[in-house]
Simulated scan of single mutants.
Amino acid sequence: MNRTDDIGKFLLRATLGVLILLHGIAKLPKGVDGIGHMLASQGVPSVLAYLVFVGEIVAPVLLIVGFFTRPAALVVAINMVVAIWLVHMGDLGKFNGTGGWALELQGMFLVAALASAMIGGGRIGAGGRFN
Rank of each mutant, 00 (worst) to 15 (best):
I84L: 12
G66R: 07
A77Q: 06
W85E: 04
L62T: 04
G66T: 04
L63C: 04
P60C: 06
I84W: 13
G93D: 12
A59H: 08
G93S: 11
I64P: 07
A72Y: 13
D91W: 14
V82D: 07
L74N: 02
L51W: 08
W85I: 00
I57R: 00
D91H: 13
A73S: 12
G90N: 07
F53D: 00
A77D: 04
R70E: 03
I57G: 02
A83S: 11
G66N: 09
P60T: 01
A73R: 06
F67S: 00
I84F: 14
L63H: 12
F68G: 10
L51I: 03
M89A: 14
L74K: 01
N79S: 13
M80L: 07
I84D: 11
V87Y: 10
G90C: 03
R70P: 11
L62Q: 04
A73M: 07
M89R: 13
V54F: 14
P71T: 02
I64T: 08
E56L: 01
G93C: 02
L86T: 14
L74M: 14
V52S: 14
M80S: 06
D91T: 04
V87F: 10
L74A: 15
V61C: 11
M89Y: 12
A77L: 07
L62F: 15
F53T: 00
F67L: 14
A77N: 08
V81C: 15
L92S: 09
V52E: 00
W85M: 09
L92N: 01
V65C: 04
V61E: 03
G93V: 06
L92H: 09
H88E: 00
V82P: 12
G93A: 12
L62E: 00
H88F: 11
E56D: 02
P60D: 04
L74S: 13
P60M: 01
G90W: 12
R70I: 02
V81R: 03
A83T: 05
A77T: 02
I64H: 07
V58M: 08
N79Q: 14
V76C: 12
N79H: 14
V58W: 08
V82I: 13
A83W: 10
G66W: 11
V76D: 04
G55Y: 02
A77G: 10
V65I: 15
V54S: 01
L86A: 13
